[in-house]
Design a protein around this nucleic acid. Structure first.
Lengths: 220, 220
DNA sequence: ACCCAAACCTGCGATTTCGCAGATATTTTT
DNA sequence: AAAAATATCTGCGAAATCGCAGGTTTGGGT
């Protein structure tokens, strides 16, 4: 992400002093005051948003190199929250420094713009899929979405996922019962295995085939 | 949008020669080759994406000042299509010119980045709502989303919408029958009126109240 | 003014989803 | 290691959604 800026790398390289948040920790909460933006140096993070009735939805997963919270700049409060899914090192950059970095590093700004435009495309694909798919397809989509965010090498065909049924449900907008049902069915078909709470996607390519009639669904 | 660039305004002001697309016309189609990006100078546009089974989904509405198709830069083909909803004047900018404009006008790039980050936030709110809402709420959300894109003044409390039931259904991921049913019910409650095919939202604020328990649902 | 095609409305049965509830399994605490 | 708390799985009836079918209205052309 920041291989685009120059002397600014130094300024930003307070990075090395960035705190490590343990798993399950809030980086910032919905409703808190906006002071700046965050870069993920290491780890996995979920971006969440709540409805008044207490339900919580996971709007996005993020990983190393991703930027968080910048959308809120110009607003008073964050309209989303961010929670670590694994131990994560996160670098905070205040508004003014970030603004100055943008103005003096066009390439950096350009890359951030491209990041957001790609994330927008991904979000739109997700919206479309969640709007058109049935439960089983949504769960598979969710698993693949998580896998994409966890996989080091996109060519790998297996990955282990360590999220609760509830957390998976919040990603695709359903409840834990539905997720359980689909997981049982997928297990019967040999597409996944479960060891204790962990879910092993045995054959990612085959899972993608199941929902392949939704063009671009697997384009994360 | 472009009050951010400088001498480039001239270069880009071939704008004045930009073609006017009649209502219902494709600006670019899913699968066609990527040559550059488009700015909407005047009019309303829908961004669509299809599944293999022929269903079509409207992923985004756009209006004056919005940018289209830039996400695709770096890819070979567009993964989305764009269709005019009203007669619209649209300016085309080829990849190279756009790239150069970005590099020489940091403020311009910055504003485009903010545009995409806001659109991402909007898309995520939409995803959340469509995932959690029932049919009636989705239709209301869709009407308000359309209204937002059509209203000249955000303080107005009334607006007339001229889209078919099918088109509304494609925005919220349902079918025209469901939309009809909900519209009938809203008409009975006096929240909307229909004249011929047009839909008049009589009281936008009251409609927003109906779905207000979804925090931020009306934050477009 | 008439006709035709397309869009719209609405009833109804089939299907899917929902969500509680109880059984089982896993993790944490004592 | 036992007990308590939490998470998961699965059955089942209730509710919502789906999609066809048939009747009605609208828009455009002749």
């Amino acid at each position: 992400m920041k291989n685009c800026s120059d002397a600014w790398l130094e300024k930003l390289s307070l990075a090395k002093n960035s705190p490590i948040y343990p798993k399950g920790q809030f980086i910032f909460m919905e409703g808190s005051l906006v002071m700046g933006a965050y870069f993920i140096l290491k780890g996995k993070v979920k971006v969440i948003s709540s409805s008044l009735d207490g339900k919580e939805h996971t709007v996005r997963l993020a990983r190393e190199g991703h930027m968080l919270g910048h959308t809120a700049i110009g607003m008073e409060k964050y309209s989303i929250g961010a929670v670590t899914l694994t131990d994560s090192q996160v670098c905070f950059i205040d508004n003014q420094t970030l603004q100055a970095a943008f103005m003096e590093n066009p390439k950096f700004t350009f890359e951030v713009m491209r990041f957001y435009s790609r994330e927008l495309r991904k979000s739109e694909i997700r919206t479309k899929c969640l709007a058109l798919m049935n439960n089983e397809e949504k769960v598979i989509l969710g698993l693949l979405y998580i896998a994409d965010n966890y996989l080091p090498d996109p060519n790998d065909n297996q990955v282990e996922i360590n999220l609760s049924r509830q957390e998976i449900a919040q990603i695709i907008g359903t409840n834990s019962e539905q997720v359980s049902r689909v997981l049982s069915s997928l297990k019967k078909d040999g597409l996944i295995e479960t060891h204790e709470r962990a879910i092993l996607l045995c054959d990612i390519r085959k899972l993608k085939e199941v929902i392949s009639h939704y063009a671009f669904a697997t384009q994360y």
